[in-house]
Design a protein around this nucleic acid. Sequence first.
DNA 1: TGGTAAGCGAGACGGTACGTCCGGTCTTTCG
DNA 2: CGAAAGACCGGACGTACCGTCTCGCTTACCA
Lengths: 198, 198, 198, 198
Amino acid sequence: MPEAKKPNPARRNERSRHAILDAARELIREVGYAKVSIEAIAARAGVGKQTIYRWWPSKGAVVFDSFLALSGNPEEGITLPDTGDIEADLKLVMRATAAEFADPDFEAPIRALNSEIISDSGLAAQYREKLARPVDDAKKARLRAAQQAGQLASDADLDLVLEVLYAPLYQRWLHRSGPLTAEYADALVDITLRAFRP
Amino acid sequence: MPEAKKPNPARRNERSRHAILDAARELIREVGYAKVSIEAIAARAGVGKQTIYRWWPSKGAVVFDSFLALSGNPEEGITLPDTGDIEADLKLVMRATAAEFADPDFEAPIRALNSEIISDSGLAAQYREKLARPVDDAKKARLRAAQQAGQLASDADLDLVLEVLYAPLYQRWLHRSGPLTAEYADALVDITLRAFRP
Amino acid sequence: MPEAKKPNPARRNERSRHAILDAARELIREVGYAKVSIEAIAARAGVGKQTIYRWWPSKGAVVFDSFLALSGNPEEGITLPDTGDIEADLKLVMRATAAEFADPDFEAPIRALNSEIISDSGLAAQYREKLARPVDDAKKARLRAAQQAGQLASDADLDLVLEVLYAPLYQRWLHRSGPLTAEYADALVDITLRAFRP
Amino acid sequence: MPEAKKPNPARRNERSRHAILDAARELIREVGYAKVSIEAIAARAGVGKQTIYRWWPSKGAVVFDSFLALSGNPEEGITLPDTGDIEADLKLVMRATAAEFADPDFEAPIRALNSEIISDSGLAAQYREKLARPVDDAKKARLRAAQQAGQLASDADLDLVLEVLYAPLYQRWLHRSGPLTAEYADALVDITLRAFRP
DNA sequence: TGGTAAGCGAGACGGTACGTCCGGTCTTTCG
DNA sequence: CGAAAGACCGGACGTACCGTCTCGCTTACCA
């Protein structure tokens, strides 16, 4: 077996790792994902190219990791507000999500991330596992509470509920096919609750 | 005023245009969007690179046009089946859509198209106008008929209905977050009709 | 016989011909011979490229013709001064030649011409015939007079005399291997006269 | 200060350097200087284009270096024959020079070199220093011996002697204005010795 | 505690593609 | 029918990065 050489993670230089992820994030913001090159990341980070190739298989992977690092490592799960009023709580969250998507500062990097995810199934899996899952779990926890409170059909598939709730917003943002207003966020909550009411 | 030089479209060589779009489509199928180069398209089409740069601003634009050309030019609008039963009709269409997305032959090119659209707002606009709109119009026509038949709330925003119906499927495909089965298609129709019933 | 198509010179547009030669001369002065392109000449002259290709076989030929046109057409021969004192007369001419070579305005075009002549034997022949010959004939006429006056060996090969007289100056200029001063010009005359004295 | 990036010569790959110079020489011989492209040199040498651009500023510089490499590096000076008879010795050398110029194998490359030298003063300086100087020094050494033997005027400027001796031959070759025969070589020696005799 | 092997910065290398320029040919339109 | 305009195929330009490959140098582990 040829068996690719594996570098020893114990010896990894944490200083370099950070510099690389920081440089990646900065460059994406400054010039856009498509124009970021590994050479530029290495130069900006003051690092040899080989150090990047040693630890990451592709530009996408570096960028992805830079997102992971950014989102902190929420070892303990996130929790959504629970006032007992599922409609109010969801509208709060949905409006926040819509606002985040509309924020031009988040625009470029999130588009970069999505672009990479579409065509790289490995990164897509990582994305689901590391970035989407924790958030989705928190949302599902809140929905489960609503089910128990009789505000949602008890047999509703919560993954499906999440999709109906978020996918329209996501698609509208991705295709720039309409404005992401608070009213729109509210409308999606209303529709979802109507579709899945007990 | 810098005023870019404009080539004269009247003198355009239709033979070359076709060869380029054909070559683009072939290459995407053969090696995948990311690995297609303008150089390769020109070589395959038996065309000078300048002839591509003269008429298209980017690789994405060429690829996009090759899709447009493929989808024919449905001068006259498309029409969806109308048996009078909106649920049955929608399930038919949704199952077909799910099947299309699941078809590995369509996989690569559609992902390429979406990847390009996400980060190029100009192409996104063209996409909405030239590819999405005609199809959406046909769908909305069918929904409107359902409204008149009292199968759908008469005040429902049809754009929103379409989003709730299709976006979950689209997102699931994009993120590969679940299987695109006929059951799933049916479920989306059921949910949408419940959400927007009169 | 395939017999290349020959355009009919009678129909040639004199206005275009002039514009082309003028444009060529201007561009050589402005950007240097090597960077002049046929496209640029055509654009500057307000002429189609084909009009250049129709009448000239190469860029070198155009440039050469632009020199010919510049040097006027001395239908009637040139004459050198003849004071009876061959030494004085030659020194006058040689100093003028040295000064001309040293003039930075003449530098670029003459180097361009020579560069072209070196590697294109056709142009070299034209150069000898059209540009060098008339001048050389005038010089030889003066030398012949000196022979008859007993100031030069009567059996001297006048072509050789010219070479001994001018070639060192020419080579020094071409290779930039030394200054082209009046003293140097004088020295060459002295040496030549000594070598070929009766 | 813009300060161009300097590659580190210590890291230079000698194998590539040789391959490039060899390829350049071969291609000049095969297709002629004007038609040699850097791309072709790189391809023939099995080298990336950047490796050429990293170490040479222009095609001319590569070609020039390939000449330098060819002429070996005569660390120790060259010496001309010295039989005590300056006329015989010079005729021997001049005939050899004439023969070399007339050799069609040397024709193309030497013309290429001269063409490049004319319009690039940097290369001209290198030419004088690296190629012409060593040879000229050897010639001047022989002439100096002749001066001490009383065969040449003791106050003769040896640079000038060399010019009178060689420039006519050089010009005749450059302009193809006459045959380069042994008789012509002899005549130039005779004339020069007469001009500079004590 | 000194030797040695890994990771590291630097950057040269063989390559591929970029987007531009121009060479020479061909076609369309006008006078 | 010559000429202007300019699109076309082709090929080279010089640049940017790719991913791989040495080079010393520093650093951490083991003997």
